[in-house]
Design a protein around this nucleic acid. Structure first.
Lengths: 209, 209
DNA sequence: GTAAAATGTGAGCTTCTATTCACATTTTGA
DNA sequence: TCAAAATGTGAATAGAAGCTCACATTTTAC
């Protein structure tokens, strides 16, 4: 016999305890990511997600209090994947030339945007973000990648200006990569090379020619 | 007595002929822009728009076949405003230094993004675009602004590379400005200066130091 | 073996919203 | 003056989608 007292209703939904339910949650998240990428946030429905996951709508709401929470979990997972993709291109770069280090950075960012491109676009452009904290932590982590290639200005140390430079660089690269992704030109070597030149020219200029 | 045959139903809705109806259409568009900026595309409703405009929902559908058409008309008007904002900073720049010309360009782009910032964000990030043509025409026009500051490469003329450079530049500037807008730092002089340096370093490098 | 907990189900309730339509009011033109 | 065209109205319709809940099935723990 089943429980008499309603087991649900808690707002932070129950965490899966058995293997079976963990698989259910995974199936839901994977299906949700597919549906979200395919339909976009506006046409992303929990019913279609449950159907695609092969579970009932009730099961979905057992683990996710609402549609947005589902999308946010997807975003959290995706941001981890993005950081991982970027981090692969990090490593022992002390000896390489500036061009090579920048090329690695660009490769990393391109790779990060190649992980489920359409999902990436929808998550960034369409899904509203309720919880700032996770996003902020990500951006901080992300920024470090750029700070690593920005040399400190010669003369008096000025961490504030160095920080601004890293943010300008980050935003500029993001802008170029996003535009390229929109036009399906993420793989264009010419574009990548031009971006590389811009960055190197900037960084060289910064370190006093 | 009123018309017996239903006067509506045409998909490209009737154009307003009298002064009265032109005022109605304007009121609808202005209210729609306010509501869209306030609520975002997902919560943008025709009923709230009609209410805010002080007209009945029926009047709204007299001039706009559906919600998207309304948003697209708003976008079209907004893009015109953006181009106008950028164009103001154009003019006789043949004599000015590179820094000054770039500063003008940046001022223009910042001004363009200051025209109803939130509406701008929603239109670009959230509202789906059905009609490419208008958007494409805008982007072409927009790109010209950048081509004007990109000097041709020394040596053999290479319009393709010059074009790529303009697009990289455009996307980079857009990226920086958008990021700044998101963080409420559109007016930061330090950021503007850093962006200016990046662009100038790039352009100088391109024209052979 | 068995009771309790965990998990799964899906019909249907509720809310919301785009859009229509039959009709009323105002303006135009002759 | 007055009929036709233009314009304005808002209750009503239709359909979609988020989410609940009463209950069924499976697993766990003893």
């Amino acid at each position: 016999m089943a429980t008499r007292i309603p087991p649900h209703r808690e707002s932070p939904r129950k965490a899966p305890r058995q293997q079976r339910s963990r698989a259910t949650v995974d199936a839901i998240l994977e299906a949700a990511a597919r549906v979200l990428a395919k339909r976009g946030w506006a046409d992303f429905t929990t019913n279609e997600t449950a159907l695609a996951a092969g579970v009932s709508i009730g099961s979905l709401y057992q683990y996710f209090p609402n549609k947005l929470a589902l999308a946010e979990e997807i975003r959290a997972r995706h941001l981890d994947a993005v950081l991982a993709a970027i981090s692969i291109s990090g490593g022992s770069e002390a000896t390489a030339t500036l061009e090579q280090r920048v090329a690695k950075l660009i490769d990393g960012v391109v790779a990060a945007h190649s992980v489920d491109q359409e999902l990436h676009r929808v998550l960034l452009d369409e899904v509203p973000l309720a919880a700032r904290s996770k996003q902020d932590a990500f951006e901080l982590d992300y920024l470090r990648r750029y700070q690593a290639v920005v040399p400190p200005l010669p003369g008096k140390p000025d961490p504030t200006r160095d920080d601004i430079a890293a943010r300008v660089l980050s935003a500029a690269v993001e802008g170029v990569i996003h535009a390229a992704a929109r036009h399906g030109e993420l793989d264009s070597p010419a574009l990548r090379m031009e971006l590389n030149e811009m960055i190197c020219a900037y960084l060289r200029h910064r370190s006093g020619r």
